[in-house]
């Protein structure tokens, strides 16, 4: 067990190192450079050279990478070129907003997908299942940002019943000491603020959740339907259990594994999707910051954000592996 954990940690370190190399090279290969962005068109060649030297961009890419990596290992991600602030502080300040949005979207996707899967399994082979298949096809083939635009159009423009931008109403007096507004508002029992936050978050979260809910719904339904033919399910039916009880008690746990893998993989996609969706809803998260960083060619900030995303992805995969062992007793003593 200890050996497996150790191997796992080593592989995580290698993954992150790889990501750091790719992002470091990639941001330097794309056209446009930060010096030109900062100085504007009227700058002289000497000014540009001076700024390049100041930022360390005159050194070779290998030397640059080595300096950056040794600093990162010590927890210093550098200073944002455009915002003149510490990258780590910036990123950690925005990360909670994105995490809360992503997890709310995950909850939406799991609830919606689970509901569709169970309903489709109970009513399998009928019009209800056909309807669910159709709906899932529709939600799956429409990308999250289009759902975002659609929701803005319907609820923000036509019906005008929901606010369409920001994370929380700006005129509110905020008692928060952390950036985890949603969690803190619940812990402080300020449910008025929770409601306000959810009121802002539900649309971007739903936009992110819909495609994932279709994947969860279809795959889980398929697994459940296969499980419903197995002998132990028939046996449970003969114990006088209703279809609903049979699904939840006997079938769900065994049918869940493939859906769990898919959800984990797709959850990382969903976090990737936050970049554009946060922009659509002017939601003050990491994704919005990332777009600004790219526009300004803010190399240290881009690198910091990508590395943080990479760490999140790695942790999600680790969590899923651990969850497998909980779900499947046969894996526990491997």
């Amino acid at each position: 067990m200890l050996k497996r954990l150790l191997l796992r940690l080593i592989s995580i370190a290698i993954t992150l190192l790889g990501v750091s190399i790719v992002v470091f090279v990639a941001v330097r290969l794309v056209p446009g450079n930060p010096v030109a962005m900062m100085l504007g068109p009227g700058a002289t060649a000497e000014d540009a050279a001076a700024l390049e030297a100041l930022l360390g961009l005159d050194k070779s890419i290998l030397v640059q990478y080595w300096i950056w990596l040794t600093n990162v290992v010590q927890g210093d991600f550098g200073t944002s070129i455009s915002l003149r602030q510490d990258v780590l502080t910036l990123v950690l300040g925005r990360l909670p907003a994105t995490l809360e949005l992503a997890f709310l979207a995950l909850v939406f996707a799991a609830l919606l997908g689970g509901m569709l899967a169970v309903t489709g399994t109970i009513r399998r082979g009928g019009w209800t299942e056909n309807g669910i298949d159709l709906w899932n096809g529709l939600t799956l083939s429409t990308p999250d940002f289009l759902w975002g635009l659609f929701l803005i159009l319907v609820f923000g423009v036509w019906l005008q019943i929901a606010g369409i931008s920001g994370r929380i109403s700006p005129q509110l007096d905020l008692p928060f000491t952390t950036q985890f507004y949603l969690i803190e508002s619940v812990l402080r029992l300020r449910f008025d603020l929770t409601a306000n936050l959810i009121g802002h978050m539900w649309m971007p979260a739903l936009a992110l959740a819909l495609p994932l809910s279709a994947m969860i719904g279809q795959l889980l339904k398929q697994s459940l339907k296969e499980t419903m033919h197995l002998d132990y399910v028939t046996l449970a039916r003969a114990k006088g259990f209703t279809e609903n009880q049979v699904i939840w008690r006997e079938a769900m746990r065994n049918a869940l594994a493939p859906t769990l893998t898919l959800t984990a993989v797709q959850f990382t996609h969903l976090i990737g999707g936050t970049v554009i969706v946060e922009r659509l809803f002017s939601y003050g998260g990491l994704g919005n910051l990332a777009i600004d960083a790219v526009i300004n060619r803010d190399l240290p900030l881009i690198q910091g954000i990508v590395l943080v995303f990479a760490v999140i992805f790695v942790l999600i995969n680790l969590a899923v592996d651990l969850l497998y062992a909980v779900l499947n007793p046969r894996l526990r003593h491997g």
């Binding site: 197995l230 002998d231 132990y232 046996l235 003969a238 006997e250 065994n254 499947n328 007793p329 046969r330």
Partner: peptide
């Protein structure tokens, strides 16, 4: 009650 045919598949593996 039922005594099923195949004892290998008639018990839920995760319970």
């Amino acid at each position: 009650a039922v005594i099923p045919q195949d004892p290998l598949t008639a018990l839920n593996p995760s319970r």
